[in-house]
């Protein structure tokens, strides 16, 4: 593909990636949040695939494409399905988050600004199109962290955690033009296990407290 197409596709994938994260802040319906997460996973996979195609299909690029396919399976299909199973029979809405939606969106904008400011030296090192997109990935990390801090439901928390992980993965791919397969496999396995454990914990919480508001756990300290 030509360089112009490459940059456009890359920007499109990054835009979808970032937009999905911001929309997670906007929506309150847990099912919609999971859907957004799946979209983000797909965007991440597309991002990796675009990088792979740009590298050329012989050798390294093929490996990246395979990785992208794996990411798509894991993050756009398997993890969302697991999360959806956790919703069934529980709360369906993120009622009253600790920071309301409007303020959350403003904060997201601030975080995006911050990550652009912080990653300037990284970009200055090698101003290729992929590296220029690093601030987007860092923004997703920060937004994921913000979701962890402000959302009450256990499921939103899991999604926040996964956003952080998506962001980190994106940073890795954008800066290094490809993570070794073994590393990515290890990370993916970790994430899968973490989600499984968190799903079990969520179910347990619901069984014990009848809800998944994390602030109900406040009495458990020393």
């Amino acid at each position: 593909m030509s360089d112009v197409t490459y940059v456009r596709l890359l920007d499109l994938a990054c835009g979808a990636f970032l937009l999905a994260a911001v929309l997670v802040l906007w929506r309150r319906d847990l099912a919609a949040i999971v859907r957004l997460f799946a979209i983000q996973g797909a965007a991440l996979a597309a991002l990796v695939a675009v990088l792979g195609v740009h590298e050329g299909l012989d050798g390294h690029g093929a490996e990246l494409l395979a990785l992208g396919a794996g990411l798509a399976v894991l993050r756009a299909v398997v993890l969302p399905r697991l999360l959806r199973r956790a919703i069934v029979g529980g709360d369906v809405r993120e009622t009253e988050p600790l920071v309301n939606v409007a303020a959350s969106l403003v904060v997201a904008a601030g975080l995006a600004l911050l990550s652009y400011a912080v990653t300037r030296p990284v970009v200055a090192l090698e101003p290729s199109p992929a590296v220029r997109a690093v601030p987007v990935a860092l923004t997703v990390v920060l937004i994921g962290f913000f979701v962890l801090v402000t959302r009450r439901r256990a499921l939103s928390q899991v999604v926040g955690f996964l956003l952080v992980d998506n962001g980190i993965t994106a940073v890795a791919f954008l800066t290094t033009s490809g993570v070794p397969l073994i590393v990515e496999l290890g990370v993916s396995l970790d994430v899968l296990l973490a989600v499984l454990v968190l799903q079990v914990l969520t179910a347990r919480m619901r069984a014990a407290f009848g809800g998944t508001d994390l602030d109900d756990l406040r009495e458990l300290r020393d």
Binding site: L142, T150, R152, L220
Partner: peptide
């Protein structure tokens, strides 16, 4: 005891 507060410490420090 609030998980959110603990997370907020991390988030605040990081940012």
């Amino acid at each position: 005891g609030s998980v959110h507060r603990y997370l907020a410490y991390g988030f605040g420090t990081f940012t």
